[in-house]
């Protein structure tokens, strides 16, 4: 489903070039649960952004299979096509939620549907089960600043999954949460993974990283460890 070949990415930081991605070779099958760990500046966020089509590699290939089952090399894609691809195939969860402060929880969740031009009746149909699953029935009409951190992150997850993407990318999803709400959010993400979504989490948190079935460790833009727990009894 995901095939990354010989991908490089270099930033200019001051007068020093930083090799954020160095010859990355990666293959991810549908429905995998992956964690990417590593020290700050190791390129893990760059890798995630690249996988999420937010960032473009300098060279190499990135093959991504869409919902139609067709795999395409996304590197030469036009930015507008990438935006469409992100909307339809990829969900994002960020550390700082990134909710629109003036829209209610329900409106934030259905935002991708609105952008896709889906009529209100159908939006409501798709929104209802998600709000229930997130346990936000009482909070649907509230603005983000009236919600707790855990609730906000659940709204963000709702927004990331309402388009029924095949790939869910989470960048430090529990970074701003207390351990209790963090555990709830992780459970929710893992539930979604059990339903078949490919889940990739970037984190500093060892415990969280260890929960993934496949662990990738990055240092200085290189993948130094790619350990699958598939064979071990969990």
């Amino acid at each position: 489903m995901i095939q990354v070949n010989q991908v490089n990415k270099t930033f200019q930081l001051g007068d020093q070039p930083v090799h954020a991605l160095n010859n990355i070779q990666l293959k991810i099958s549908p429905g995998e649960y992956l964690s990417i760990m590593g020290p700050s500046g190791s390129g893990k966020s760059t890798l995630l952004n690249m996988l999420g089509l937010l960032d473009i590699p300098d060279d190499g290939e990135y093959w991504l299979q869409g919902c139609d089952g067709l795999a395409l090399d996304t590197v030469p894609m036009d930015e507008e096509v990438r935006a469409r691809y992100r909307r339809d195939h990829i969900g994002f969860v960020f550390q700082s939620y990134h909710l629109i402060p003036r829209l209610t929880a329900a409106e934030n969740i259905e935002l991708p549907l609105v952008l896709a031009g889906i009529p209100p009746d159908e939006r409501k149909e798709r929104l209802q089960p998600i709000i229930q699953r997130l346990g936000l029935e009482q909070r649907a009409g509230h603005l983000p600043n009236q919600l707790s951190g855990g609730q906000r992150q659940r709204v963000a997850i709702g927004r990331a999954t309402i388009m029924r993407p095949k790939l869910l990318l989470a960048d430090e999803p529990t970074g701003n949460l207390d351990s209790h709400s963090g555990a709830e959010v992780i459970e929710l993400l893992e539930e979604l993974n059990n339903d078949g979504i490919t889940l990739i989490i970037v984190t500093h948190d060892m415990d969280l990283g260890d929960r993934a079935k496949r662990k990738i460790r990055m240092v200085d833009g290189e993948i130094v460890l790619d350990k699958s727990r598939e064979q071990e009894p969990s």
């Binding site: 935006a83 909307r87 994002f92 700082s96 990134h98 991708p112 952008l115």
Partner: peptide, 16 residues
């Protein structure tokens, strides 16, 4: 700009 980034990430087209 964070909001603009988010809108772009969830697939808002440039024209939108």
């Amino acid at each position: 700009s964070a909001e603009i980034g988010l809108l772009r990430a969830i697939g808002t087209s440039r024209n939108q």
